[in-house]
Write a protein that binds this DNA or RNA. Structure first.
Lengths: 234, 234
DNA sequence: AAGTGGTCTAGACCACCCT
DNA sequence: GGGTGGTCTAGACCACTTT
């Protein structure tokens, strides 16, 4: 038994379902069990694969049916560079400032550092197709990334962390809120003063579970919205 | 058998797990089966509830363990009512308006309806601990929910759809952006005119894959932020 | 009343991890 | 080799929907 039966049956049902119309009824579970020469429990395991993907749904006492097709991608962690490429835009960067600064209280709490611990602060104007898209301020613990500021900071920071420090941000906690732009911010972004903007804050965690990055990104509201597919867990 | 055994057992295991430490090992499946006086398959069904929530994980040939808390689970679909309860706040509602209206172009596109198709439009001021939290405008296809407007619209709409129309929103596509509030909006929310606010738009899909709901929620920026754990998919 | 999916049993063997 | 979770069987009854 190298590959489980229910996976094989699930695949066969999958191609079968893809040739059917939304709303069509699938054969009864007892019929499928007979056809594949397995027990009904195994058929149900295969069907639950499709149900979990939202391809089919069951109605008690009625049958199992092909669902309307949908597209709901889960949110996946992406750098600005990756996000823009996925949207078909050319990412760019203008470095506004880079310095070593002591961690202020709120940042220290977010990264679980002692207050005042040395961090690198990198502020960049991020561009998409050469037009300002967001204003990004990243803080990283200085101890983890020696000589970081000597590198080229105008391209992807995530790529730099990977190649030079062998560190990958594998998960993150993000929050979204809104803000009214200050005069400086609206000038940099090229939007009217006092505009509303979307703020994303992110704390990134690497494979070892270390908090390696705090980022605050202020997005132009007229060029960006954040998309997210969500599912209900019962 | 009013409520399935595995749900009961799942709840008992849930409280048990909440009192354990991450990494702790759960009793063996065969032990749990004996303790609850059920078959092992039923125990596995209960455990899979917790595994789906990311609360526990299993290692073949080793055991089942308590997972690290908050380890980047994607956001789960929640109604306003559920969201507030999860944040420890008491949800409430003030009905601002409910009517049958023809779908405007943008809404029709989002719900894949013909333009001008009849929809129910429900506008509510949502409260948390009796203080305004967000301004919510929901549209639903009238054809799917006959006589919806006769019901009590001040409590959870999701609960109403479940009990009265046997429909559950199981997936949704959400977008987040920012907006400056109009005078009417800021008055209703009780914040200064011209404040920035977080806007969430959602298209909800039921088990059959039907688009059943379009919601636009405008959240007070001083009381709400949206949190999201994301993981990097390799 | 008949038929469907939902739950449950009491076993069995397999694949993998440990010592 | 012994123990764990993963898969699978051949039934059974229950809850619900439709005829």
């Amino acid at each position: 038994m190298t590959t489980p039966l229910y996976l094989n049956i699930g695949e066969q049902l999958s191609t079968e379902v893809s040739r059917m119309q939304p709303g069509d009824r699938l054969p009864k579970e007892r019929e499928l069990a007979e056809r594949f020469a397995v027990s009904r429990m195994t058929v149900r395991q295969a069907l639950s694969l499709l149900a979990d993907q939202g391809r089919v749904y069951s109605v008690r006492g009625h049958g199992t049916f092909v669902a309307q097709p949908h597209v709901a991608k889960d949110a996946t962690l992406a750098s600005f560079t990756e996000d823009m490429l996925a949207r078909g835009l050319v990412p760019g960067s203008r470095l506004l400032g880079a310095a070593e600064v002591p961690a202020p209280a709120e940042l220290a709490r977010a990264l679980e550092l002692p207050e005042g611990a040395p961090t690198f602060r990198i502020e960049r104007l991020r561009l998409a197709d050469n037009v300002p898209m967001c204003l990004e301020t990243v803080h990283l613990p200085a101890r983890l990334f020696p000589q970081l500021l000597d590198a080229d900071l105008t391209s992807s920071l995530y790529a730099l962390l990977g190649t030079r420090f062998r560190t990958t941000v594998v998960r993150a906690e993000q929050t979204f809120s809104a803000v009214r732009l200050t005069r400086r911010q609206s000038d940099l972004l090229g939007v009217p003063a006092g505009s509303a903007a979307l703020v994303m804050r992110r704390v990134g965690v690497d494979t070892r579970g270390r908090l390696v990055e705090h980022a605050e990104s202020i997005y132009r509201n007229d060029r960006y919205e954040f998309r997210l597919g969500v599912v209900r867990t019962p």
